[in-house]
Simulated scan of single mutants.
Amino acid sequence: MPSAEYYRVLWLPKLRVGWNENPVPNSTHNFFPKEWTDLWDEGERDLEAFPLDVNIMGVQTRFHDNAIQAFLELASQKPVSEFTDLEKSMCGELDGVCAFVHPKGAYDYALESDDPAIRIAIFEGEFVCECHEGANVDDPEKKSHVVRVKKRLFTRPVQQFAKHYIKDSSIN
Results as ranks from 00 to 15, higher is better:
Ser3Val: 04
Tyr7Cys: 07
Val9Leu: 07
Leu10Gln: 13
Pro13Tyr: 12
Pro13Cys: 12
Lys14Asp: 09
Arg16Gly: 03
Val17Gln: 14
Gly18Asp: 03
Trp19Ser: 00
Glu21Trp: 09
Glu21Gly: 02
Pro25Cys: 00
Pro25Tyr: 09
Pro25Met: 03
Pro25Leu: 06
Pro25Ala: 01
Ser27Gln: 07
Thr28Glu: 10
His29Ile: 10
His29Thr: 14
Asn30Val: 04
Phe32Lys: 08
Phe32Leu: 12
Pro33Phe: 11
Lys34Phe: 11
Thr37Leu: 14
Asp38Thr: 15
Asp38Trp: 13
Asp38Gly: 02
Trp40Asp: 01
Trp40Arg: 03
Glu42Gly: 00
Glu44Ile: 08
Leu47Tyr: 12
Asp53His: 10
Val54Phe: 12
Val54Asp: 12
Ile56Cys: 11
Ile56Val: 15
Gly58Thr: 15
Val59Glu: 10
Val59Tyr: 05
Val59Thr: 12
His64Tyr: 00
His64Arg: 04
Asn66Phe: 07
Ala67Val: 05
Ile68Val: 14
Ile68Arg: 14
Ile68His: 05
Gln69Val: 12
Ser76Met: 13
Gln77Glu: 14
Pro79Ala: 09
Val80His: 15
Ser81Glu: 15
Ser81Ile: 14
Glu82Ala: 06
Phe83His: 07
Thr84Val: 04
Asp85Val: 11
Asp85His: 10
Leu86Cys: 00
Leu86Arg: 08
Leu86Phe: 07
Leu86Ala: 09
Glu87Gln: 14
Glu87Thr: 01
Lys88Asp: 03
Ser89Gln: 13
Cys91Gln: 13
Cys91Trp: 13
Glu93Asp: 06
Gly96Asp: 04
Val97Ile: 15
Cys98Ser: 13
Ala99His: 05
Ala99Lys: 08
Phe100Met: 07
Val101Phe: 14
Val101Ile: 08
His102Trp: 07
Pro103Met: 11
Lys104Ile: 07
Lys104Pro: 01
Gly105Tyr: 11
Gly105Asp: 11
Gly105Asn: 09
Gly105Arg: 10
Tyr107Ala: 08
Asp108Ile: 05
Tyr109Ser: 08
Glu112Trp: 04
Asp114Ile: 03
Asp114Cys: 01
Pro116Asp: 08
Ile118Glu: 04
Ala121Asn: 05
Ile122Cys: 06
Ile122Ser: 06
Gly125Thr: 08
Phe127Tyr: 15
Phe127Gly: 02
Val128Pro: 04
Cys129Ala: 12
Glu130Pro: 00
Glu133Asp: 07
Glu133Arg: 11
Ala135Ile: 01
Asn136Pro: 00
Asp138His: 09
Asp139Cys: 01
Asp139Arg: 07
Pro140Asp: 09
Glu141Gln: 12
Glu141Trp: 02
Glu141Gly: 01
Lys143Arg: 15
Ser144Val: 00
Ser144Cys: 11
His145Ile: 00
His145Gln: 06
Val146Gln: 12
Val147Asp: 02
Val147Tyr: 08
Arg148Thr: 01
Arg148Glu: 02
Val149Gln: 07
Val149Glu: 05
Lys150Ala: 02
Lys151Met: 10
Arg152Asn: 05
Leu153Lys: 14
Leu153Tyr: 04
Leu153Phe: 05
Arg156Cys: 01
Arg156Ala: 10
Arg156Pro: 00
Val158Cys: 10
Gln159Val: 13
Phe161Ile: 03
Ala162Val: 10
Ala162Leu: 13
Lys163Val: 05
His164Val: 06
Tyr165Asp: 10
Asp168Ala: 11
Asp168Ser: 11
Ser169Asn: 06
Asn172Gly: 06
